[in-house]
Write a protein that binds this DNA or RNA. Structure first.
Length: 331
DNA sequence: TAGGCCATCTGGTCCT
DNA sequence: AGGACCAGATGGCCTA
């Protein structure tokens, strides 16, 4: 793909006015006040601006410069561009507005899928939202870890399991996973030896010892959803062998319906976690029900730092749920 | 204040 | 022609 650099006005060109639709009202025609006007700030003019602006100028006032521009136009290779008439401008604008709306919707769909992915992560936290990239990394690690476990090479209760989960994750996210697993201090856990030197700010080794790290909020942390491991064991035991993987995801969160005996969860949590909060996906009855998020019933609640959690309105970023942002990356 | 993360707009490309 | 997808650009918000 050809990368087009940010186009600025060339030498000798007059400052061009922004497209007509931007005049006066800086909000877009579709009423979206969030439309960015930054494209026209600081004298930066993008391709569209140049086209529309210049052709607008050609239409509105014919002066000597336009003559020069037409002369340059005739030397240009390729198909000659059509004049941008008022009608064409309006059609272009309408198309652009529709495309923007589609793009927004598409990105919202992407974010929804990502949110669904977050909810089935082994350490789903309401108070410390994983970033997009961390969610994807953790998901990859989770798949790898479960695959190894299924092959019998990795115990879900082992430290190696957690190390696999933490591979390539930022320090705070690794701490979150470790906190969810409630494992003891581990020297360099989750950090490949070759990566350790790249950790710029690792205040403490992973594990309980780092809970007091200033970079990490105080508990509650997310919970390691033992039901996932229960699911894993059940699969190994053949309980779900009549279900296809696609059935697991039929509920939208990728988990099979569980109707087994209400025995204590079989997982590391039963050994290591002092108190296991019931997962929103697996209420005490052990009958699966869609999460509040999936039901659109995400109740407003106060997070650990007093921030209000609730439905995330991407059109009002100030309503974003609190998240712990990490500045430590290893890649 | 710098840097990370995010939402949004935008133009290009590919496909139907 | 129009939609989907992608990547660049930009500003806002937040945290260290």
């Amino acid at each position: 793909m050809m990368i087009k650099p940010y186009v600025r006005q060339g030498e000798g060109e007059e400052a061009l006015s922004p497209p007509q639709w931007m005049d006066g009202d800086m909000s877009s025609p579709d009423g979206d006040a969030s439309v960015s006007s930054h494209c026209y700030l600081e004298g930066g003019v993008n391709q569209q601006d140049r086209e529309m602006g210049s052709e607008d100028a050609q239409e509105d006032d014919e002066d000597d410069e336009d003559g020069q521009e037409e002369e340059n136009e005739s030397k240009r290779r390729g198909p000659k561009k059509k004049r941008m008439t008022k009608a064409r401008q309006e059609r272009f604008r309408a198309r652009r507005v529709k495309a923007n709306a589609r793009e927004r919707s598409r990105m919202h769909g992407l974010n929804d899928a990502l949110e669904n992915l977050r909810t089935i992560m082994p350490c789903h936290s309401k108070t410390q939202k994983l970033s997009k990239i961390e969610t994807l990394r953790l998901a990859r690690n989770y798949i790898c870890a479960l695959s190894e476990a299924l092959e019998g090479g990795l115990s879900t209760e082992s430290r190696a399991f957690m190390e696999t989960l933490c591979k390539g994750l930022s320090q705070p996210t690794s701490n979150l996973v470790a906190g969810c697993l409630q494992l003891g201090p581990a020297s360099g856990t989750g950090v490949r030896p070759e990566d350790r030197h790249r950790v710029r700010a690792a205040p403490a080794p992973l594990g309980v010892a780092s809970y007091s790290s200033p970079g990490l909020p105080s508990p509650p942390y997310g919970t390691f959803d033992s039901a996932h491991l229960l699911h894993l064991r059940a699969m190994k035991g053949g309980v779900y062998e009549n279900h296809s993987p696609s059935e697991y995801s039929a509920g939208g969160v990728g988990t099979p319906p569980y109707d087994g005996p209400p025995t204590p969860p079989l997982s590391i949590s039963s050994n290591l976690m002092p108190k296991q909060e019931p997962s929103p996906h697996y209420p005490p009855s052990h009958h699966y029900s869609p999460s509040p998020v999936d039901q659109g019933l995400y109740q407003t609640q106060t997070g650990y730092n007093g921030h209000v959690e609730g439905p995330y309105d991407s059109y009002h970023p100030q309503h974003m749920p609190p998240r712990q942002i990490t500045s430590v990356y290893r890649d």
